[in-house]
Amino acid sequence: MNKVVGSSAEAVADIADGSTVMLGGFGLCGIPENLIGALVARGVKGLHTISNNMGVDGFGMGLMLEASMIASHVGSYVGENKLLEQLVIGGKLQVTLIPQGTLAERIRAGGAGIPAFYTPAGFGTVVAEGKETREFDAQNYVMERWLKADFALVKAWKGDRHGNLIYRKTARNFNPMMATAARITIAEVEELVEPGQLAPDSIMTPGVFVKRIVKGEKYARRIERRTVSRI
């Protein structure tokens, strides 16, 4: 059992034009920055991406936008990216915005084999338009479908050659669900360790969900909003 690949470039080598790709992260926190870099270097086109945000100008998924790699995107908030506004206004990019909890649960459902579920989020809003709604115990709910992808690119803190993963602090976010919801999950980690070095009780993503694991070449660990205390 050895899922380790030698480089980020090798890890993403078979991602074809037009693939559906999930990318972990919240803002710039916990994004697969090396795998994104490798995808941009390959110049893949027409991707359908699923990610909570879309990076910022010049970093994260912002680099994919600048390279015109994305045809459509599903996320919950895309407010940090000026280029994105221009692409949407110009009709070059189709963006679907959905509630963040619905996004998380649709991905979880995709990985767990649950084709649809009901949520109260968005009932009576534009989000519910065209969707089945139903009343349970005197409350209204919207039916939402699962989300799956061809590839999931996730970022973890530590991993082993089995694909077992541990995330760090709020860099966990969407990564664990995405790891379960794609045909091929590729994990990049800061530290690649030997099997047995991760305590079995602490493993957050069991290796079964991960097809490839790579040690990220370089981490910028960019902070989007640096806020500090004065005293």
Partner: peptide, 11 residues
């Protein structure tokens, strides 16, 4: 820009 988690929270 998107609703983020607001719809889930208020519901």
């Amino acid at each position: 820009k998107g609703m983020g988690g607001a719809m889930d929270l208020v519901a």
